[in-house]
C-alpha cells in the first residue's frame, strides 16, 4: 500500500520502490476504484462505470487539465504574495522530497554546472559564482505544500526573470523546465517564471542553501505549491513542448498555482 506521495514507505530500500512506483500506484488506484463502486448513487448518477478505472482516471485528469487553464486565468502576474518579517522565518526549514532524508545525494558546488537549453540564445553553462553575480533578491514568503502544511522561509538569489534575460530566452515560449540531480523533473508556465517572486534560490535565511534543501540552487516561487520548486537544479530548458513533471505523472495538477 502506498501511503503517500511524498514519503513512500520505503522499506527496505527506496530504490526498489522507485523502480516500480508506477506499477504500485496503478494497483492501488485500481483498489480505490473498486471501493468506489460501493458509492452506488455515484455510479448511478454520473453515468460512469467506476470499476473502469482507466476511463474515470482519464475523466478526472481531463478536469484537472481544465482546472490548469482556470488557474492560469486566475493567476495575476502582478500580484505579489504576502511577505513576512524575518523574525517569523522557520530555521531550519522543513525537509521534503520523494525519498527519505538519508537518500539525499549532496551536490559538489565546486564542480556543479547549470546547463541551459531550448529556446535561448546563450547556452553557456553557469557556475554558482556567475549566478551569485546577478542582482540578488531576498524574500520572506510562505511555503505551502499540497499536503497542507506550510512554513515561512527566507530565500534569496537572482530572479528567474533576470536569469532568462541573461541567457536570451524566448520569453514568449510557454514553459520553463527544470532537471535536477535527484531526478525530479519539473516545469512551470512562463508567466510564473517571470513573476518577481520566482527565484533561483542560493540561500536560506541568509546562509548558503544547506544540502537537504537543494544546494547549490533550487527554485522558489511564491505563487505555486511546494512540489513545483525543484531542488538541486542541474539544467534549465525553455520550451514550447509540455515538459510535465515528477508528481504530475502520478496525477498531481500541473499548474499548481496558489
Amino acid at each position: 500500500m502506498i501511503r503517500s506521495p511524498f514519503r513512500p514507505q520505503a522499506v527496505p530500500d527506496a530504490g526498489i520502490l522507485d523502480n516500480h512506483r508506477a506499477l504500485v500506484r496503478q494497483v492501488t488506484r485500481r483498489g480505490m476504484f473498486r471501493r468506489g463502486i460501493s458509492l452506488g448513487a455515484l455510479t448511478m448518477l454520473t453515468g460512469c462505470n467506476l470499476s473502469d478505472d482507466a476511463s474515470v482516471d482519464a475523466a478526472l485528469r481531463a478536469v484537472s487539465a481544465f482546472n490548469d487553464k482556470v488557474q492560469a486565468l486566475l493567476f495575476d502576474p502582478n500580484k505579489l504574495a504576502p511577505t513576512y518579517p524575518e523574525s517569523m522565518v522557520l530555521k531550519p526549514p522543513r525537509f521534503n522530497a520523494y525519498y527519505p532524508i538519508d537518500k539525499v545525494r549532496p551536490v559538489d558546488g565546486a564542480t556543479w554546472k547549470l546547463e541551459v537549453s531550448g529556446r535561448v540564445s546563450d547556452r553557456a553553462p553557469w557556475t554558482t559564482a556567475r549566478l551569485a553575480a546577478l542582482p540578488q533578491t531576498d524574500m520572506v514568503i510562505r511555503h505551502v505544500c499540497v499536503e497542507g502544511w506550510d512554513y515561512i522561509g527566507e530565500w534569496s538569489g537572482p530572479t528567474l526573470k533576470s536569469f532568462l534575460h541573461s541567457v536570451g530566452a524566448d520569453l514568449n515560449a510557454r514553459y520553463v523546465a527544470f532537471h535536477t540531480a535527484d531526478d525530479y523533473p519539473s516545469s512551470i508556465d512562463m508567466a510564473t517564471a517571470l513573476h518577481p517572486q520566482t527565484l533561483l534560490a542560493l540561500t536560506y535565511a541568509r546562509e548558503t542553501l544547506p544540502d537537504p534543501y537543494g544546494y547549490p540552487v533550487r527554485l522558489r516561487t511564491s505563487t505555486k505549491l511546494g512540489y513545483k520548486n525543484p531542488k538541486w537544479i542541474t539544467a534549465i530548458e525553455v520550451t514550447n513542448d509540455y515538459p510535465g513533471g515528477f508528481w504530475e505523472k502520478s496525477g498531481f495538477g500541473w499548474f499548481a498555482g496558489i
Binding site: P5, F6, R7, P8, N96, A97, P100, I101, E147
Partner: peptide, 12 residues
C-alpha cells in the same frame, strides 16, 4: 545556543 538536530520529512 545553536545546537544541531536531525531532520525528517513528513510520515506517510
Amino acid at each position: 545556543t545553536v545546537i544541531r538536530m536531525g531532520i525528517v520529512g513528513p510520515f506517510h
